[in-house]
Design a protein around this nucleic acid. Structure first.
Lengths: 215, 215
DNA sequence: CTCCTATTTTGACCAGTGGTCAGTTTTAGT
DNA sequence: ACTAAAACTGACCACTGGTCAAAATAGGAG
């Protein structure tokens, strides 16, 4: 990414990533600009926030850190997003979509044990996206929760409908909810204690088997 | 609680709680001391930390805030505790004990539905002690987790043993673990979304009923 | 090309955090 | 009364999320 950087009033440096491309001096003000500043868009901010988020988690990612990666000031981020919560709410939209499409994919497959897959893949998603899951289903603050509630509910309803369909029989909504809670319990207890799904795969399989038997 | 407070070098004020008791001046240094400073003990710090913790939660309680309540400097707290984590680890010991005695109490009662009580009271404990539960069973950091793991495991084992005994039959440990996860899931999903157990009592009762049927 | 306005961006600033540590005060024993 | 150990202080550090006046840039109209 190209970054223009002002050094003194008229002395400027143009970077590509972190390396100097060239320097130049302003005569008047570079009227009829041949260059534009690399534009800072919501999208590019979200993208960078996600990169840091995946390895550091919400708490440890700082707005200043993101701004630094992007070669802009942290103040600029607050022009595009009301606050940190709003930024990460947008980051998470992506993952709600991912979870939804996991569910959809299982339902269109053939010859698979759909119930088992639904349960197991939900757990896998949680454990392979620990920081994301944390914010999606284990709220950190009232403010974050109010932003997550709608997409979380939508994902749950998609899951619930899929479970009923996969079972081939009528299920009480309480029953499905209890199963969901049990899956959530597994994820939330193992979150951050293991590195990835595989480490808990056996336990997950047993838990899933237990839940399947209730149907 | 009595607090001595230095104002200028020789001008001192003695407080009881937040109100002035009397002032005095030092001549030399108050040799052969008639008074002792109100001592700052681990216990009194834990006690005050708990008070703030209950209403604010781990993140929002600050060491400076606690020190202020206690009329000492925040540095003093670090003399007694290595860091914030260590302090709150001690705060939580109390609640692990409370959870353990809830389990014990249920088991010595007579003519009660022990399984139902065990399940329901676990949920009640979690929802009525949201900030505590969060730290006890939903780790915030590797450091906190390593301190919580031992007492959490102990509490779980007590719970598991109680469940098996209450059921009157042999239960596979995987089965008990799955039930525990399901209860944990209920608590962790409702935590902070409701004010107290009563608000979720009906849902909790249905979830518990579902789990009982698996036995 | 010159203005002029609107949009973006900057960076000093604020109030707050957990944590450290040299220097001081207080305690307790000799 | 002296001394060594224990307890405590508060300036300091590096950091956080967030604000905002001022400055830079963009884009259109004349």
């Amino acid at each position: 990414m190209i970054i223009w950087k002002k050094v003194s009033n008229n002395n400027n440096i143009v970077y590509v990533d972190k390396r100097i491309l060239f320097t130049y001096n302003l005569i008047d003000h570079w009227s009829k600009r041949e260059f534009k500043m690399a534009e800072l868009t919501k999208d590019i901010i979200i993208q960078q926030a996600r990169i840091r988020f995946i390895e550091q988690g919400y708490e440890k990612v700082s707005m200043r850190g993101i701004a630094n990666d992007l070669g802009c000031s942290h103040g600029a981020l607050y022009y595009h997003f009301k606050n940190k919560t709003a930024l990460f709410s947008d980051v998470l939209d992506y993952y709600f979509q991912e979870l939804n499409s996991i569910i959809d994919r299982i339902m269109v497959q053939e010859e698979n044990d759909k119930l088992k897959d639904l349960f197991l893949e939900f757990i896998r998603f949680g454990l392979d996206h620990p920081y994301q899951y944390e914010l999606m289903f284990m709220l950190k603050s009232k403010e974050m929760d109010s932003l997550m509630q709608r997409p979380a509910t939508e994902s749950y309803e998609r899951f619930a409908a899929a479970v009923e369909q996969a079972s081939g029989i009528h299920l009480y909504s309480d029953h499905i909810y209890s199963i969901f809670l049990a899956l959530h319990g597994f994820v939330s207890l193992h979150l951050h204690r293991i590195e990835n799904f595989e480490e808990a795969a056996e336990g997950a399989a047993r838990h899933v088997e237990f839940l399947k038997k209730t149907i």
